[in-house]
Design a protein around this nucleic acid. Sequence first.
DNA 1: CTGTTAGCGCGTTCAA
DNA 2: TTGAACGCGCTAACAG
Lengths: 339, 339
Amino acid sequence: MRKPATIQDIARAAGVSTATVSRALSHPERVAEATRSLVLDAVRRSGYRVNRTARNLRRRRSGSILALVPNLANPFFSEILSGLSSVLAESGHGLLVGDTHIGPHPAARLNDYLAAGMADGVVIFDSRLPDGMVFEGARPPMVLACEWSRPNLPSVRVDNEGGAALAIRHLLRRGHRAIGHLTGPSGNVLTESRLAGTRQALSEAGLKLAPDHLFPGDFGLGSGASAAERWLALRDRPTAVFCASDEMACGFMGALRHAGIDVPGAVSVVGFDDIEVSAHLVPALTTIRQPRRLIGERAARLLLAMIEAGSSQAPAELLPVQLIERQSVAPPATTPLDG
Amino acid sequence: MRKPATIQDIARAAGVSTATVSRALSHPERVAEATRSLVLDAVRRSGYRVNRTARNLRRRRSGSILALVPNLANPFFSEILSGLSSVLAESGHGLLVGDTHIGPHPAARLNDYLAAGMADGVVIFDSRLPDGMVFEGARPPMVLACEWSRPNLPSVRVDNEGGAALAIRHLLRRGHRAIGHLTGPSGNVLTESRLAGTRQALSEAGLKLAPDHLFPGDFGLGSGASAAERWLALRDRPTAVFCASDEMACGFMGALRHAGIDVPGAVSVVGFDDIEVSAHLVPALTTIRQPRRLIGERAARLLLAMIEAGSSQAPAELLPVQLIERQSVAPPATTPLDG
DNA sequence: CTGTTAGCGCGTTCAA
DNA sequence: TTGAACGCGCTAACAG
């Protein structure tokens, strides 16, 4: 028994036709109970598994869905992928992951994948993608996750603007007036909406974001550290900085403390994401929590439903965020207190 | 032009047979130059892509390789996956990822994948897997990455024992005698070899690992924090602790500092992995660097070579590790110095 | 409820 | 060097 059993072998062993075997496996209810158990027995005895490739060719599906992330090395995505993976495992779909940072033309690579029929659906975590895409031929259902550049595409996202406002109001409540913002990469949708939320909450308090207090970043650790240098060089320093990602907040606080600056004594910091490490930093990072696993799960379910229905439309889902208070925020110009 | 072009369409457009089109695409050298360009032109004009599913069925391959990780949510794996993804992208293979924490029987799920012909090769990051596997029928090539439980299987790994010894000798050199070790989960291969390296280096100096100074962990942040509590409760505290992962080191230092203990003043810490955040912690973590991206790349190349050769054998590759000195280590029982 | 028939789209014989 | 024909393993029509 070197090579795997085929549906023919089962048909022979059970004394039925291959069609019946196929039905017994795919649509058990369409087959008489007696024959069904006959088939299932034969299957068990032989250790037969349906050949997904053949099934997929026949069904004109690929059996897997593709997740396109801007940077696989970024831990922010790992838990989302884990959520995706867990619901896809139930439905028997494979999870194909692609890193859009790799290779020359991310959008072209996406097209290749799709045109080659390699995915039944796509979850896109990179908002640059849908804009760069040439829509050649029919495409499988896609959902945008996290980043939301095209209002007409199905999406699972988080209230970024509201989250930013939550962060700012928290700082305001603690008495801060000079509040800075460390942004994501320019042009990014997330960057825009978190900035907008920041401005909005500030203006509600009659405040503005000083140009000096707007630090450009890219969501990565390194850019947080760079922002710290800029903060140090300022004559007129903000007493609090809201960072558009936890990684940046981490880099920011790290560099500050390495320079001997006390956080939150000299400057308060709020992050965004609530990645796992944030609770273990010193000081523990106050941040806006995104339900990352849930994002993955919802995106997967949305996509599966679309595939099922043969539709490329779906509602946009908006998931709530939450302020997590820890120790990186204190009133301005005082010695550190803990909450 | 609603549905994608097939090889038939190209054959018609180029005035040749489908066999010729197939050859022109898969084995260009076996076709006359004139006809080849005829075909390639038709391909370009129509935007034709070969249907991977059909090709795979015919070739009896699946076109993708599977990476099985113990916990997708663990950022340690993200960069490795990124390395895998980049070399697989070149060869046109898809990267399927599976989380072995999901679902009831990880080994059974692996078998399902393979028996269903869903992967041409597997990279396994979870050493529990090969042990639990029932080898039903022919299996595609597999390589063990990072964890190395079966000497006879191809593997890409790192010198864990040597790395641990590096860490311990560094601590020894700085004057520490009472050195503790925070381990990975029990039964894990990595846990064993890092512990062995620790013991080895200690014994070279005529020292032993006190039972009290052996802290059980699981590689995760939380277990680092728990170890800190145990450390605090000790009458006879080690002046340095070598942690088997950076995440644990991070949790350990965090909890210690939250409790008001100075690191490295009161206790020095060395980690293992050199994850990105380690350089940004306070104090910046001294650690043993693993070439994570390289691990992924090598594993991918090894696997591709095996698939190419139709072999399930390959050499075991051993990648070097490196001590990265930062600020979490100081001489024992003094006020903090920085190196 | 079940069997027969006919492909899914491609790669590979075997002749020409 | 090229084309005709077959089949990879499975499922969807259509009869019966």
